[in-house]
């Protein structure tokens, strides 16, 4: 073992937070896709659910030219937002707090904002990959119609982006709830499942009990699934909605509200340290 270079005392400029954030994106993606657990959970499960539900209920007609499979694909794409952002981060960050990742990073000159840029980049790439898989499976096996109207793609874009931002921030805030990394998925997964059941992913929303509809309308997923249905279902399917329309302005408003709420919650509650270590 040899050491040859003297310590630096030069005043070279520090790397910018953005360029370090992009480096973090690369390292997050490498770590994410090499870790088999997260890859399985985030990519195979939604496709598996799609195949199972599609095979069992797929041919039930909800209306003229509308199958449950189409309804379900839209719900799974909305769920993909929740999986890749909220669930992913609310599980991964406690694990990083446990295994020393966060403490090690805290001891370096890396600006904290670069860490969050890395997480946001990871979430967006994972979501794009997941949506691509779901859409391809939906089109090939379940007669999902891709919209030709640019306005619908615009809805898809803003719903995805607002959903990802709000659920990413909520995932960062929620990462303080699990006591440790090991137990994180046991705390987080049931929440995601409950939201899916009550928000019109596994069941047709308008057929749910009224109190369940009210409960779900406080959370982003219900509005996200509704916006996704407006993209991937024919216009005639709007009559299946509780309001008889897609309520897109309301969808956008609730998602924006959760972006703000998520930002406040993550700023107030996020911690780098384990409890009692400061």
């Amino acid at each position: 073992m040899t050491t040859t270079t003297a310590p630096h005392t030069s005043s070279a400029p520090a790397p910018s937070p953005l360029s370090l954030g992009l480096r973090r994106v690369r390292i997050e993606l490498k770590t994410f896709f090499r870790d088999r657990n997260s890859a399985v959970w985030n990519f195979l499960l939604p496709v598996l659910l799609l195949v199972i539900f599609g095979s069992v209920f797929g041919n039930q007609d909800l209306g003229p030219g509308i199958t449950f499979a189409q309804y379900f694909v839209a719900g799974m794409i909305a769920s993909g937002v929740l999986y890749t952002s909220f669930q992913n981060l609310a599980i991964a960050i406690p694990m990083e707090r446990d295994d020393g990742t966060l403490k090690r990073l805290q001891g370096t000159p890396m600006p904290k904002v670069s860490y969050f840029i890395g997480k946001i980049g990871l979430v967006f790439v994972a979501y794009i990959a997941q949506v691509t898989i779901l859409v391809v499976v939906g089109v090939v096996f379940y007669k999902l119609h891709l919209p030709s109207d640019p306005a619908k793609w615009f809805t898809f874009l803003w719903a995805s982006v607002l959903g990802l931002i709000s659920c990413t921030l909520l995932g960062i805030a929620f990462s303080v709830v699990p006591k440790n990394g090991k137990g994180a998925s046991a705390v987080v997964s049931p929440i995601v499942l409950v939201l899916q059941f009550t928000s019109g992913v596994f069941f047709v929303f308008s057929q749910l009990p009224h109190w369940m509809q009210v409960f779900a309308s406080f959370f982003p997923l219900k509005w996200l699934t509704q916006a996704m249905r407006s993209v991937f279902l024919p216009d005639s399917a709007a009559s299946l909605e509780v309001a008889g329309s897609w309520e897109l302005p309301a969808c956008a408003a609730v998602l924006i509200a959760w972006c703000v709420g998520g930002l406040v919650l993550s700023l107030v509650f996020f911690r780098w340290n384990k409890r009692g270590q400061a």
Binding site: H8, T31, R34, T101, R104, P109
Partner: peptide, 26 residues
């Protein structure tokens, strides 16, 4: 800073980890 035990960076190679952290410093 070399802290007491950590178990992070398991999915990255030695070279990837060291090169990545090098990027944090001026």
């Amino acid at each position: 800073i070399v802290l007491q035990s950590a178990s992070d960076l398991g999915d990255l190679t030695v070279e990837e980890s060291v090169a990545h952290f090098a990027g944090y410093y001026p």
